[in-house]
Design a protein around this nucleic acid. Structure first.
Length: 121
DNA sequence: ACGATGACAGTTT
DNA sequence: CAAACTGCCATCG
């Protein structure tokens, strides 16, 4: 059994797990909702390390970049899978492979309160 | 502890 | 509009 994911990672997973089908969020948005508006890059790191055991529970495909595009640069296969999964649930891509964020962006959970993930216990 | 790393983002060319 | 630059952050050896 591998080690449990770091705190920050698990918070990312818990939030992303709430993104409804057919909606998307950006890395920066996730970071902001977690109370760390500049940690967008770290959110990407967290998703890159998403345990296989959680791929079924965490809709990682619903997280895209601020430009409305897929960010998996190196992994082309994975990138195609992400687009396929999103189209599968009704998210449309324009000719440039971008999603209309104004239309598909998820605004976040109701009465959401940023977790104190960075608090030292 | 320090520097390298990467599924980012905003600004400037 | 796209590529280049620059700042930022949690993790990892």
């Amino acid at each position: 059994m591998p080690d449990r994911p770091p705190r920050f990672f698990t918070h990312v997973y818990r939030l992303v797990a709430q993104v409804p089908r057919g909606k998307v969020v950006t890395y920066g948005q996730v970071a902001a909702l977690l109370g760390a508006p500049r940690a967008a890059r770290a959110v990407g790191t967290a998703l890159r390390h998403l345990p296989r055991s959680l791929t079924k529970k965490v809709p990682w495909q619903r997280v895209i970049n601020a430009s409305g595009g897929i960010s998996l640069r190196g992994d082309v296969v994975r990138a195609e899978e992400q687009r396929w999964l999103l189209e599968e649930e009704g998210v449309a891509f324009n000719r440039n492979g971008k999603v209309n964020l104004e239309k598909y962006r998820w605004r976040g959970p109701k009465n959401w309160k940023a977790p104190a993930w960075d608090a030292r216990l």
